[in-house]
């Protein structure tokens, strides 16, 4: 994994601390060309990995990347699935069964229900695999070395104690996509324990790491302890705690911790991208990173 990853929240009006900013961003990035322009600016600054949700519009970005193979040579995408709001809104409107019927591809779900066939464990896992394949379609032909499970799903599975499903996601990503599985979470300590319990070693985990302890569930001290004692490859996100911390302070804090493989951030302007990249690059890597 590279030291710096570029995120996509700003492109889709995802802003955790202001609905107003979120609308302004949705307006700014209405056209795909505006997204591609900022991606190119991030590439100019040396960022060669784009970590993004499986939002419908990412399909257009993928088309642009595929149609310019020379320009995007060596460019990587880390998909994060699923784009949860698509499903959440469907569940509110259609109920769980209705949403499943809409999103599980083919007649798989319908025919099982119609036939009154009892589900066996294998069926649920195959259903999940079909959904992963559906989400991955848009990335065909693009280098996706790490594939992530979004935090809403990861955290839901943690709370429900469904460690076998985390394991099934992990194994399917390796088997089918020859990629590394990753997990996004707001609950790092709990996730590390759960992954350990199903034998997943040295996992890639993307989680909030910031000086303010914002969205570090269970507390900053517990996160620091986890980073110091467990074998994990952490991608730090929300390092600016939504803008509460200055970029310099933010990067200083993250760099003081072991086991941070990468920093993920998103920005809408070239200057902001440059500032973060310069700050991150002026710091020495902690020795733990060398093996990654």
């Amino acid at each position: 994994m590279e030291r710096i990853l570029f995120g996509d929240n700003q492109f889709f009006g995802v802003n955790h601390i202001s609905d107003e900013k979120s609308r302004a961003q949705a307006i700014k990035f209405k056209e795909d060309a505006a997204i591609l322009k900022v991606l190119d600016q991030s590439r100019d600054c040396g960022i060669n990995t784009f970590m993004c949700t499986t939002h419908d519009r990412i399909a257009n970005i993928c088309n642009a990347i595929r149609s310019n193979p020379e320009k995007y040579k060596g460019y990587k995408i880390y998909p994060c699935m699923p784009y949860a709001h698509k499903y959440a809104n469907a569940v509110t409107e259609l109920g769980i069964m209705g949403a499943m019927k809409q999103y599980v591809p083919g007649n798989f779900f319908g025919s099982l229900l119609k036939g009154g066939v009892a589900f066996v464990s294998k069926d649920y896992i195959s259903m999940m695999e079909l959904m992963i394949d559906a989400e991955m379609k848009m990335f065909k032909g693009i280098d996706t070395p790490v594939i992530f499970l979004q935090n809403v799903i990861t955290d839901l599975l943690i709370g429900l104690g469904m460690k076998d499903i985390l394991k099934a996601f992990n194994d399917y990503i390796i088997k089918k996509y020859n990629a590394e599985p990753g997990f996004i979470t707001m609950n790092l300590p709990k996730l590390v324990d759960m992954l350990e319990s199903v034998g997943i070693e040295n996992p890639i985990i993307c989680t909030s790491i910031n000086k303010d302890g914002f969205r570090m569930s269970g507390g900053k001290a517990l996160y620091e302890q986890t980073l110091q004692t467990k074998k994990v490859r952490v991608i730090a996100m929300q390092v600016l705690a939504g803008g509460a911390i200055s970029p310099k302070e933010a990067v200083d804090y993250v760099n003081s911790l072991p086991n941070i493989a990468s920093i993920l951030f998103g920005a809408s302007s070239k200057n902001n991208i440059k500032e973060m990249v310069t700050l991150i690059n002026t710091h020495e890597l902690q020795p733990q990173f060398n093996s990654l």
């Binding site: 601390i17 707001m186 570090m216 569930s217 507390g219 939504g242 509460a244």
Partner: peptide
């Protein structure tokens, strides 16, 4: 003032 400065921390976060 934003939610990040006004929220109470939690032990487990979902949504």
């Amino acid at each position: 003032r934003h939610i990040n400065e006004l929220t109470q921390p939690v032990d487990f976060y979902l949504r």
